[in-house]
């Protein structure tokens, strides 16, 4: 497996995890997204633009939540804290992120964690690059204000 493909897998997985907040579900959706990507009419190669993968994954996440509302709630509700691999070193930053809206959290993840270019994000979210840039600045300013100057991001 190429490094590029694995990197894509990780990005989509993080994107999905942010939405479903469950590793197994996020991996299922990620893998389903890749399989659907292979069948996609615009598919040319696995090295193609990741934007299609994000779109498929986002739609699968929506489908997942839509399906979940009709299903009965499972008895064992996934507990983030039970995940042994989840180590949060900076609790204050984590709390600051949690205080953001889901859309802003997704934007921060795409830009600073997945390190997607503004062009890809703007196409994915249907917002102009300038709007995204302004929004990111606003989010960072909000995080700084919450963390204090000494802990600024």
């Amino acid at each position: 497996m190429s490094i590029d493909l694995k990197e894509k897998y990780s990005k989509i997985y993080r994107y999905c995890y942010l939405r479903v907040n469950d590793r197994a579900t996020a991996e299922d959706i990620t893998q389903e997204a890749f399989l659907r990507f292979l069948e996609h009419p615009q598919y040319q190669s696995l090295d193609q633009d990741i934007r299609i993968l994000y779109t498929i994954a986002g739609n699968l996440c929506k489908d997942h939540f839509r399906k979940q509302t009709h299903d009965e709630l499972p008895e064992d509700i996934p507990d983030d804290t039970a995940d042994g691999e989840r180590l949060i070193e900076d609790i204050s930053l984590h709390q600051a992120l949690e205080s953001l809206s889901p859309e802003d959290r997704e934007l921060v993840l795409l830009r600073y964690v997945n390190e997607e270019p503004l062009g890809v994000i703007s196409q994915l979210l249907g917002i102009s690059r300038f709007a995204i840039d302004r929004r990111l600045r606003k989010i960072l300013a909000s995080l700084r204000s919450k963390l204090g100057k000494e802990d600024a991001v």
Binding site: M1, Y9, Y13, Q31, E89, D90, H94, L97, V108, V153
Partner: peptide, 27 residues
């Protein structure tokens, strides 16, 4: 360093099934 801090703050665990997934015959 700040990006790493953000990534850690999200608290997203690493995926486990990537290697096995890409070994599937479709890929």
């Amino acid at each position: 360093k700040e990006k790493e801090a953000l990534k850690n703050a999200f608290g997203i665990p690493e995926p486990l099934g990537a290697d096995a997934f890409f070994e599937r015959p479709e890929f």
